[in-house]
Every structure is written in structure tokens, then in C-alpha cells.
């Protein structure tokens, strides 16, 4: 899937440039303008089809992600559905375009108005990742008292639990940091629009950094939890 996504993105990225170029040359006194126009049209339609496929894959991903909240899934379905309908309508327009300028404008809209690969796909992946992190943090929170009970039992039995106590403090610090970092991140990033991305191509950088930081915290918590168990087993 990853390779498929990259192939599509690379192909459509090149197609984007080529489509606009073809639409321009088709209109610039080319000896065979109709041929160039049809070539550009075909490339535009192909770009739409690739995006419709991606929308389908993103919809399936959202539908199959058990940790995605209903609210976030609803938001994703909404903007993907709107994009799919919009692109389908755009395709109809492109199929009817006889003026190279109109064709160029419609083809440009495929990218600027929808940003399926640059924005929507990362938004969905980041939402799935963020909600998965929220679920993981909830699960980790239930492990904390159980690990603490085990430490207390070991201490009551006369074991030296100094290291286990330090690891527990580190684990809890990581979880607290993760909770604070993740709060509101997915809600915010799902609200970003293609217009915002067009104005700021680093729009998702903060979201990506936050989710990556929470991922690191989770790994720390898992590592600390395992170390605590190893300590108690002696």
C-alpha cells in the first residue's frame, strides 16, 4: 500500500506539472492544438481518477481504524465525500472543456481545491495515529496502578524496589507529557482546509511533531513497564 501510494503520488505529481504545461502549450499556437488539448484532458482525468482511488483508500482506512473516534471519522467522511463529489463534478467540466484556458483552470483546481495527497491523506493518517495514541494512553493508564500494586507487594515482601519506583516515576512522567501533548491535536489538524495548506505548506508540521513525540512517550512507557516487571521478577 505504501509503495502504491508513493507511485500514485509521484505519478500524479509529475502529471500535475505535465497537465498544466500541456494545457498551456495546447493553447500557445501549437500546430496541432486539438491533439494537445485532448492529451491534457486525458492527463487531468487520470489525475482525478488517481485521487478518487486515494479517497476510497482513505475512506476504507478511516472505516477500519477501531480507535478513530466517531467524531473524527465523521469529519473525515465529510471532507472526503465532499472531495469525491467535487472531483467528479470537475471531471464532467474537464470532459466538456473546449477552451484550453478553461481546461487549464479546471486542471489546476484538481490540485489547489482538494489537496488530496498533500493535505487530506496526511490528515487521515495523522488522525488515525493520534486517536490510536489516545487509546494507547488510556490502556497505559490502566496499567499504572497494577504496576504500582506489584511494586508495593514487592516492597512489602522486603524486596528492594528503588529502581522500580524510579522507573515508575519516569513512566508516569512520559504518560503525562503524552497526554498534554496530544490534547486537541487531532481536532485541530482535521480542521485544516486546502486553502490553508496552499498558504502554508508546513501546516501539518506541528501536528506531525506532536504525534511523533507522543509515540516516543509511549515507547518510553512500554520500555519502563517492561523494566519494572523485570526488576520485580529479580
Amino acid at each position: 500500500m505504501k509503495h502504491t501510494l508513493r507511485r500514485h503520488v509521484l505519478a500524479t505529481g509529475m502529471a500535475c506539472t505535465a497537465v498544466v504545461a500541456l494545457a498551456s502549450t495546447a493553447w500557445a499556437g501549437d500546430p496541432d492544438p486539438n491533439s494537445k488539448l485532448e492529451d491534457a484532458r486525458a492527463r487531468c482525468i487520470e489525475a482525478i481518477e488517481v485521487r478518487q482511488t486515494e479517497i476510497g483508500e482513505l475512506s476504507a482506512l478511516a472505516a477500519s481504524a477501531p480507535q478513530l473516534t466517531d467524531s473524527h471519522e465523521g469529519t473525515i467522511k465529510s471532507f472526503l465525500s465532499a472531495a469525491s463529489i467535487g472531483l467528479a463534478a470537475l471531471q464532467v467540466e474537464i470532459e466538456g472543456d473546449q477552451d484550453p484556458a478553461e481546461l487549464r483552470e479546471d486542471c489546476t483546481a484538481i490540485f489547489d481545491d482538494y489537496r488530496i495527497f498533500a493535505l487530506r491523506a496526511p490528515q487521515v493518517h495523522l488522525a488515525v495515529a493520534g486517536d490510536r495514541e489516545a487509546a494507547a494512553l488510556a490502556k497505559a493508564a490502566t496499567l499504572v496502578p497494577r504496576l504500582q500494586e506489584a511494586i508495593d507487594a514487592a516492597a512489602a515482601a522486603g524486596e528492594d524496589v528503588t529502581v522500580a519506583v524510579e522507573l515508575m516515576a519516569h513512566l508516569q512522567e512520559a504518560l503525562a507529557h503524552a497526554e498534554a501533548t496530544l490534547t486537541g491535536v487531532v481536532d485541530t489538524e482535521l480542521g485544516f482546509s486546502p486553502e490553508q495548506w496552499n498558504a502554508n505548506h508546513s501546516l501539518l508540521s506541528a501536528t506531525t511533531s506532536a504525534i511523533r513525540a507522543v509515540h516516543t512517550d509511549l515507547q518510553t512507557a512500554v520500555s519502563d513497564g517492561r523494566a519494572i516487571i523485570a526488576e520485580l521478577k529479580g
Binding site: R6, A118, A121, P122, A135, A136, T208, I211, L218
Partner: peptide, 19 residues
Amino acid sequence: LAEQIDQQLRDAAAAAANG
């Protein structure tokens, strides 16, 4: 779960890097 999250981050980066 952490591994799945890492995969989502990589997929997001792969898409975003190509615009």
C-alpha cells in the same frame, strides 16, 4: 499500537512529501 502509529506517521510523511 506504537508500531501501527509509526506506520501511520510514515504513510502521512510519504503523502505529504509529494504534495
